[in-house]
């Protein structure tokens, strides 16, 4: 449960205000340049390949798994062998097929939760960073208070009252992540709002809404992208943790966190494979999103 409550605040933004003329074209060139740098980074390539693999698994589901992950039963607790690459679980289902199919639930839930939290958090963050003053003070205190609430505990409480449906799990994780995103985006906005082009826009008499959405938001899109990839990683972790505690996705879904919680006690009976492989799957997904996030961040600030 090492879900971070706080992340290193990403300060500093992209290059300073572009010249007034041909801003669009120059931006496009800069973007292409960054993309070129990105694909040359091994971390990005490895991360993307892993991500792509899991996306294929999630989309393909039981159509592409070697065996039916839910309905095919063989002798239970077989060690990894030629027929069952990752062995079979306590009911005799193929662990390899279950790990592949298990990508679906988390790959749907995690990005949606991340998108929601990044959308809400960015909105709050930009407002706080742009207006500053009392708006910022009040919202900051609320965010601080939200951050001090134990994440998993509140999630468990909400889920125990409202039931453990996918929508509730996604919504809960999204709400819990929002303040963290808001804090990061606020920091980026603060740095951006002091730059000349924002001042210029203000002097032109543009409305606050215009400045925030048309001027600031595009310029902190890098920060937001990184924040999104990082949040996806943590969402995977949080959703798995909730499943582990019995409050997330329910059986017979081959979801990784759920599978781990159902099988981790078999390790002491010598059956390590039904637990180890989903654990490695979670790790690989988290690492992959981190690699991609790190690469984007490095290229952006280079």
């Amino acid at each position: 449960m090492s879900i971070e409550s706080v992340d290193p605040v990403i300060v500093g933004g992209p290059a300073p205000a572009p010249p007034v003329f041909d801003a669009r074209g120059e931006k496009r060139i800069a973007r292409r340049e960054r993309l070129r740098l990105l694909v040359r980074r091994p971390g990005f390539i490895v991360g993307s390949v892993i991500l792509l693999f899991w996306i294929v698994c999630a989309v393909g589901g039981d159509n592409i798994t070697p065996l039916d992950p839910i309905n095919d039963f063989d002798v239970s607790n077989q060690r990894p062998n030629a027929d069952h690459l990752f062995g079979t679980d306590q009911l005799g289902r193929d662990v390899f097929s279950r790990v592949m199919a298990g990508a679906r639930d988390v790959l749907i839930a995690a990005p949606i939760a991340a998108v929601l939290s990044v959308a809400m958090g960015s909105m709050l963050g930009v407002i706080m960073g742009y207006y500053r003053g009392w708006v910022d003070e009040v919202l900051s205190r609320i965010i601080e208070a939200l951050l001090s609430i134990p994440v998993v505990l509140v999630a468990l409480l909400i889920i125990s009252v409202l039931g453990a449906s996918a929508i509730i799990v996604i919504g809960t994780v999204a709400v819990l992540f929002t303040p963290i995103v808001a804090r990061t985006v606020r920091a980026a906005t603060l740095a951006e709002a002091q730059l000349d082009y924002v001042t210029a826009a203000r002097l032109r008499g543009e409305s606050g809404l215009f400045v925030m959405t048309r001027e600031i938001l595009p310029n902190i899109s890098g920060t937001i992208t990184v924040e999104f990839t990082v949040r996806v990683g943590y969402a995977v972790f949080t959703i798995s943790t909730l499943s582990f505690l019995g409050a997330g996705i329910q059986p017979p879904s081959p979801d990784w966190g759920l599978t781990i919680s159902d099988t981790y006690r078999l390790i002491q009976a010598g059956f390590w494979w039904p637990t180890l492989f989903p654990a490695l799957a979670i790790a690989s997904l988290v690492i992959a999103t981190n690699l991609v996030a790190d690469s984007i961040d490095t290229v952006r600030s280079a």
Binding site: M1, F237, S261, T275, A283, V286, I287, L291
Partner: peptide
């Protein structure tokens, strides 16, 4: 570092418990 912090701690906990303890 990335790998070790990406394994849920209940998995590393059970593994340590089984190997070192049992």
């Amino acid at each position: 570092g990335l790998a070790s912090s990406s394994i849920p701690e209940f998995v590393s906990g059970v593994t340590l418990q089984f190997v070192i303890g049992v």
